[in-house]
């Protein structure tokens, strides 16, 4: 199949499980061009002028919502943020009715974050604007998966045959699931580790390698992606204490030496410094954590552009 016919025009972006490798390649390639815009003095381009994007966020978010907002604005679109606390959701409106209301206003894209798994798919079946999933419960967070792959490829030049270790709370992590789907399709080897109470049962069946000890996952890894540990998981009894977690599962300089000397360290943020990741490694030369944020903006610009304009060549569509 030639790359020329790959298009994401009018395509809902619900997850990486349902995205083909060629489609992901297209997004990653387009994001590279977008990244140049971010570095310009005058960032705004008129590509999406006259288009409207609604950020419909049912969960709190700073970085993802800001990232989508700036991505839309840099491309010239009108962007409106709706957060659940300020919307009619608190009055008991159903998700379908909220979506129908937003649709009736004539928007082109709804970027949605919601605490319930499958809510992005629900939205895609309920209304006609393009739906971009900005996180649906513990299911998927496709733009995070794409930006993580973009970051890895930027540093390693490829994804194929790399050993990527994802460490921490896999059970509750949409970031982990999107990474797993994306990385497997791009030919990487995915290794998971964390307390067994935070590893989904039978997840190995998808094609990943599961370790009980962090050290085994880190061994020779090219990339180490550390997930956020939410404190309420401890209160639910899934691990005994933050102290013990940090001691046995936390990524610190000593443990990181098990990975390749040039291993890339990533974290989707926000970090709990001293819990899942130590400050010494978070700010070290191996860390790509700040780069991930910038790349996230480029990925979201690429996706907004591709689902609305379809084309591959940014200049041609101007």
């Amino acid at each position: 199949m030639s790359k020329g016919i790959v298009t994401l025009k009018n395509r809902d972006i619900l997850g990486l499980e349902t995205m083909a490798a060629a489609e992901m390649e297209l997004v990653l390639d387009t994001a590279r061009e977008m990244k140049n815009i971010i570095d310009r003095d005058i960032k705004k381009v008129p590509t999406l002028r006259g288009k409207s994007i609604v950020n419909l966020f049912f969960e709190n978010s700073t970085r993802t919502r800001t990232s989508f907002e700036l991505a839309g604005k840099y491309l010239g679109a009108d962007v409106v943020n709706i957060s659940a606390s300020g919307s009619s959701v608190s009055k008991g409106e159903s998700l379908r009715d909220t979506l129908l209301t937003v649709e009736a206003m004539g928007v082109d894209i709804i970027v949605m974050r919601h605490e319930a798994e499958g809510s992005a798919k629900f939205a895609s079946e309920a209304v006609s604007p393009v739906i971009i999933n900005a996180g649906d419960g513990a299911h998927e967070h496709p733009t995070q998966g794409l930006l993580d792959m973009f970051t890895i490829r930027q540093h390693k030049g490829r994804l194929e045959d790399l050993k990527v270790a994802i460490i921490g709370d896999i059970l509750h992590s949409r970031v982990a699931r999107s990474n797993i789907w994306g990385l497997l399709k791009m030919g990487a080897q995915v290794h998971l580790a964390g307390p067994q109470t935070l590893l989904p049962r039978d997840i190995a069946q998808v094609g990943v390698t599961v370790h009980k000890r962090v050290e085994d996952a880190l061994e020779g890894a090219d990339v180490v992606n550390v997930l956020r540990i939410q404190k309420e998981r401890q209160q639910k009894g899934l691990f005994p204490s933050a102290r013990e977690y940090a001691r046995i599962f936390g990524i610190n300089a000593h443990r990181l030496t098990l990975a390749q000397p040039d291993a890339l360290l990533m974290h989707p943020g926000p970090m709990n410094r001293g819990l899942e990741i130590s400050p010494e490694v978070a700010y070290s030369g191996q860390s790509a954590i700040q780069e991930q944020v910038k790349n996230g903006l480029a990925i979201r610009m690429a996706l907004l552009f591709l689902v609305l304009m379809g084309g591959k060549n940014l200049e041609a569509s101007n």
């Binding site: 499980e17 798994e117 499958g118 649906d136 419960g137 513990a138 299911h139 998927e140 509750h172 949409r174 699931r177 797993i180 789907w181 989904p200 049962r201 039978d202 997840i203 069946q205 998808v206």
Partner: peptide, 10 residues
């Protein structure tokens, strides 16, 4: 609870 729930996040 099984392989399907593992990847749906439910």
């Amino acid at each position: 609870e099984g392989a399907v729930s593992a990847m749906l996040g439910l």
